[in-house]
Design a protein around this nucleic acid. Structure first.
Lengths: 237, 237
DNA sequence: CGTCTGATTGAGCGACTTCAACATATGTGG
DNA sequence: CCACATATGTTGAAGTCGCTCAATCAGACG
């Protein structure tokens, strides 16, 4: 493993200020970051604006400076499955081959850095470290997707919701009593968890009624008892 | 994309002879293959034998010569989600970081080539192409996982079964009337599709009753009407 | 032949969905 | 600032798909 801490100024401040999730960002070493910075251009997207669509030529990869992004697939009849939420500090579109396999939309107003794929590819050829970092990024994505799979395939609605909230809380290093930001709406949660919006609402209400969490407003939850929440996530009822 | 056709003798013959799926194998160029061959050692596993377990130190990566492998995760209470089936010609364990994220078991008696990770890593440092190929391998895995996600999150039982059978058939280039090998049992299918074995049976029986497929025996299906099967997969009933 | 494993079918139940009503923001124009 | 509109979220009642439990079947093998 060749991971190094990433510490350029703009991304860290952005992460602190706006990152709803404080999970470890894709680690990049200094040389790579400097090189990346040189080829990136800033770009802005409004809430629900499409950044790229499934099937588009994958001409760019991205890194989020502030805001958040949903990555999803649609079935022909409109059913939607969100594969990932990406947050400040995260990369996305790196995993694409010739065409994007997912659609990317801004969850909220977002500022991103755009990297031209051809320049990125050239950089990769030159810098072994960049290629290695990219490999590790993909490994993480794959691992996350596998965790997501068992969630959708083998967990109950309550377990999925609780697992999701645990993930949110952990990425923000939340402890009992601290407020956790929920950047996505209920429909987004439902489409990520393979449920309906009603089921999501009910499960959240149940957790609230059981005093495991509190809901100050739609976009925040307070974890009152992390152990209990984890137990629900694990199916220990 | 830097993919080249792989044409070493042993793997192609193995694929022809035993591959239940004839999907494009991870493409590797000649140089990489020769180098890989030099560091690989043959290894055999019996039916249901564990090749590695989730959490083990990831000391080796593998390529299947013959047979098939299931890759899965378990929940603490024993619920199982199969993430992938791997078949003759396929690599697995390449995606692992320090530890394996999944458990690998032989679906049937299997012959595999084992590559020591430290030697593999050294090869990657030396050969740009190998790293590039590995990257593409991971991209495919990720893309497959995302397709699997929408299956589990947003498709009905019938759609999942039909989609699965279409996948099987396509990988074997099956046309209407040709027999498709089904290397895994019903429980494996269920754990891949996030269903119970009974639901899998019933859905298959329904397709048989509708004359969309025929079932000569447990490990074979005949696609009688691929268009109809695809329609079921797409939810066009 | 009996046993064992895996597959199939049936009956009843329950978790999640669907449909519907209502509530709570957020924003807009007067 | 209020009246109204729209989007999002919440709750209830009824329906259904897939699960659970249970019995039976089919092939493999000693």
């Amino acid at each position: 493993m060749t991971a190094h801490l990433s510490t350029t100024t703009h991304q860290v401040t952005a992460a602190k200020a706006l990152a709803p999730f404080a999970q470890p960002v894709a680690d990049m070493n200094e040389g790579c970051l400097a090189a990346l910075k040189a080829i990136g251009t800033i770009s802005r997207f409004g809430r629900n604006e499409t950044i790229f669509s499934e099937g588009d030529q994958a001409s760019y990869s991205f890194k989020i400076v502030s805001g958040a992004v949903r990555l999803y697939k649609l079935l022909p009849d409109g059913r939607r499955q969100i594969a990932e939420f990406r947050l400040a500090g995260d990369f996305f579109g790196m995993e694409a081959a010739a065409e994007y396999a997912l659609t990317a939309e801004a969850l909220s107003d977002a500022v991103v850095v755009r990297y031209a794929r051809n320049r990125l590819d050239r950089l990769e050829d030159e810098q072994v470290n960049l290629r290695r970092d990219l490999l590790n990024l993909l490994r993480r994505d794959l691992s996350a997707a596998q965790t997501h799979l068992i969630m959708l395939g083998r967990q109950t609605a309550k377990e999925r919701i609780a697992s999701f909230l645990v993930q949110l809380a952990e990425r923000q290093n939340a402890t009992d009593g601290s407020s956790v930001e929920v950047p996505m709406g209920r429909q987004d949660m439902a489409d990520y968890l393979g449920l309906t919006i009603e089921t999501v609402c009910r499960a959240i209400s149940d957790l609230k009624r059981a005093r495991v969490i509190a809901i100050p407003d739609r976009h925040h939850i307070v974890v009152r008892d992390m152990d209990a929440l984890q137990s629900v996530a694990d199916g220990d009822i």
